[in-house]
Design a protein around this nucleic acid. Structure first.
Length: 361
DNA sequence: AATACGGGGAG
DNA sequence: CTCCCAGTATT
């Protein structure tokens, strides 16, 4: 029912400081804004990072929360938020901490580049002070268009519209758009944003998406935007937006070795983008057609260790990998670490738990 | 425009 | 099982 707004030719996606031209806007903007903000003022969630005056929140707390909440549901982010703020109450404390301590606080939360970038950015902020604009925030590592809009609207009262999964779904349904492009969503969000209360508006749209305009079974009966919603009128609101096509998840066999005990073990620091910076049991992916025991010999040769008996097998699903880990014992005269002191991925936590329960399987 | 990047909740 | 989550960096 609604045609996509034309995108300005040279405008970079995501950075839409300028609203793309919108043809005849289909809603009465003041009434729609008033309806959603009234709903938000009545039923908005009381979350720990929402303390402080509207539009003048503590930038450090807002920032940490927004990084933690990237691709992470609020209930889970809240646990890590409390843990992280206790460990690093100020940006100075975060900047002064070693990376291992930061990753330990992030342990199990996933997407560990968030923690590495946040730590690096904190060192810039401790030196230069907090950015005073959307563009300043955007320049920090780990801060993209979403986070820059969130922090600048919530802490600086800057009129910037966030574009996250909630906003995408709410606007796709409101307009009846099945395949909203990022630029389309940003344009609509910019138009809708209440410039008088940008922070509250952003939180209101996200709250609506999280609690009412949910992916599978939206509760249109209680939605303050129902009078204007094309998807609700269609009778099948859950059909908007259409599901994203996802690449199949490959199966990746891996061999790992436990040298020592599940409590005191030889650990390696992972490098690269996958689990980079975390510690873990020495491990190697199997080559094509290789059997686990041959990979174990290769791994042990690298470590100068002697291969031992199998301890078990486990599977671990990540977003884009399904790992089958074959765990063996090994012997070597190498320094061990107390595993509870190290920052480990869930995969390594599972492997150590498996080794501690050798009767299973 | 596609892909890599964790882990878990909800249906 | 599938789909999604207060996204970002890299290609």
């Amino acid at each position: 029912m609604v045609s996509a707004a034309p995108v300005a030719a040279r405008q970079a996606p995501y950075t839409a400081a300028v609203t793309p031209p919108v043809p005849a806007f289909p809603f009465p903007l003041p009434a729609l804004r008033a309806a959603l903000l009234a709903w938000f003022d009545r039923t908005g969630r009381a979350l720990p990072w929402r303390a402080g005056r509207e539009g003048a929140r503590d930038p450090y707390r807002v920032w940490v929360a927004e990084i933690l909440l990237q691709q992470t549901q609020v209930v889970r982010g809240q646990v890590y938020y409390d843990r992280f703020l206790t460990a690093f109450p100020t940006v100075q404390a975060l900047a002064a901490a070693p990376q291992e301590a930061v990753l330990k606080a992030w342990e199990g939360c996933g997407y560990y580049a968030r923690a590495r970038n946040l730590h690096r950015a904190a060192q810039q902020v401790a030196r230069n002070g907090f950015p005073d604009s959307y563009d300043g925030w955007l320049a920090l590592p780990g801060v993209g268009p979403y986070t820059a809009a969130a922090v600048s609207s919530l802490a600086l009262n800057e009129a910037r519209a966030v574009n996250d999964g909630n906003v995408r779904r709410v606007l796709a349904r409101l307009h009846g758009e099945a395949r909203p492009s990022p630029a389309w969503v940003q344009g609509r969000a910019d138009t809708l944003l209440d410039p008088q209360r940008p922070g509250a508006w952003n939180e209101a749209v996200m709250d609506l998406g999280a609690t009412v305009c949910t992916p599978a079974a939206p509760r249109c009966e209680v939605c303050p935007l129902r009078p204007w919603c094309a998807a609700s009128a269609s009778g099948t609101p859950a059909a908007y937006p259409a599901p994203k096509v996802r690449a199949p998840v490959p199966d990746v066999p891996v061999v790992a070795v436990l040298i020592g005990t599940p409590q005191q073990a030889v650990l390696e620091r992972r490098t690269g983008t996958l689990l980079g910076g975390l510690m873990g049991l020495p491990a190697e992916p199997l080559a094509a057609g290789e059997v686990p025991h041959d990979a174990l010999r290769r791994l042990c040769a690298r470590l100068n260790a002697r291969p031992g008996p199998p301890l078990g097998r486990l599977t671990h699903v990540m977003t884009h990998r399904r790992i089958t880990l074959h765990l063996y014992a090994g012997q070597a005269d190498l320094p061990r670490q107390t595993v509870t002191d190290a920052a480990l991925s869930r995969l390594d936590q599972k492997a150590l738990a498996l080794a501690a329960q050798p009767t299973l399987l």
